[in-house]
Design a protein around this nucleic acid. Structure first.
Length: 315
DNA sequence: TTCCAGGGGTAGA
DNA sequence: TCTACCCATGGA
């Protein structure tokens, strides 16, 4: 087993912690957030099937305007050429490290509700390294409690390949692994219910090349925004709310994902206990223009960023 | 029992 | 485009 290292520099404001806990993905495999060490772990498969343990920690940067990220890759022949660079690229995707959010943070300066976002380095939403994983997790998160969604996602994640450097983690399952597991596994073991055929359909289409989520992902920055949204909402099991959420993960923040949790938050915090309409919620955030969902995610999770209590991680 | 979660698909107007 | 109805699961 070898260890390789890499570094990423992210323009400030940035906080690994704030980015990781920006929404619920960090609770799902193959992510593992080590609260006491403020370290993100993740199992990642290479093209040849080797599964690496990727460890991400925040460090100081030699550049005054940046935060450093130390990336450690552990696994079989981890020092092979290109391995650390590839893992570093995937970490950059997950943490939106290359995104220029200066305009958003300028906006935060002038909005009292958002002032603290700069100090907390908040604003980025962690995503998976592939749209394939983000889409499946999103589909499993519909119409169930978040706790139930995490359970389903983590049961599905058992289909991945084991990570020798950290046996509790496995790589995220490939389309082929899900196809081979069959719909019965999705129903009986994952307990995905009526979502099972959607997931199987996505896996079959991705495996056969009928859809290419990697291509959509890669083109996300260049594609016309409406076109990108249309491609997402056309996926079986992905509706408007999920598509808006996925747009956020792909770096388009003028898509507010209004779901039952948004209503609950807005009713409680923004409308004095009265349930607003979707239009009212959208009007509330429209003032933030192209940054509206970053403002939303920040506002919604700000208490968590301030008064974080360690989660109990299974040992 | 009934309701409902970080909704979406489908048929029918 | 909008609405009514259905869909598995599990906790409250």
């Amino acid at each position: 087993m070898q260890t390789a290292t890499a570094r990423l520099e992210v323009r400030k404001p940035f906080s690994l912690f704030s980015t990781v806990v920006s929404h619920g993905w960090y609770e799902t495999l193959p992510f593992r957030w080590l609260e006491s060490e403020r370290t993100l772990l993740r199992a990642e498969a290479l093209g040849d099937g080797r599964v690496m343990l990727v460890r991400v920690e925040e460090t100081k940067s030699p550049q005054r305007n940046h935060t450093g990220l130390a990336i450690t890759v552990k696994g079989e022949n981890a020092r092979d050429p290109g391995v650390a660079a590839e893992m570093s690229r995937r970490v950059a995707v997950m943490l939106h490290a290359d995104e220029d959010l200066r305009e958003f943070y300028e906006l935060c300066k002038s909005v009292p509700d958002l002032q603290e976002a700069r100090r907390l380095g908040a604003g980025r939403c962690m995503r998976a390294p592939t749209l394939w994983e983000d889409v499946l997790k999103t589909v499993l998160g519909t119409n169930v409690t978040w706790r139930q969604a995490v359970t389903m996602i983590n049961r599905l994640a058992q289909l991945g390949d084991p990570c020798p450097a950290f046996p509790e983690l496995r790589s995220w399952p490939s389309p082929g692994q899900i196809v081979r597991a069959k719909e019965k596994f999705l129903r009986d073991t994952v307990r995905a219910g009526y979502r099972s055929p959607y997931i199987m359909e996505l896996a079959l289409a991705q495996k056969s090349g009928e859809i290419d989520l990697d291509a959509i992902d890669g083109a996300a920055a260049k594609l016309d925004e409406q076109e990108l949204y249309k491609k997402l909402v056309a996926l079986k099991g992905v509706g408007k709310s999920s598509a808006h959420f996925l747009m956020n993960l792909l770096g388009h923040y003028d898509h507010l994902p209004v779901d039952s949790a948004t209503y609950a938050y807005a009713t409680r915090e923004l409308f004095n206990g009265r349930r607003p309409t979707e239009k009212q919620i959208r009007r509330r955030y429209a003032r933030y223009g192209k940054w509206q969902s970053l403002a939303y995610w920040y506002e919604r999770w700000e208490p968590r960023l301030r008064w974080w209590e360690p989660i109990s991680t299974p040992t």
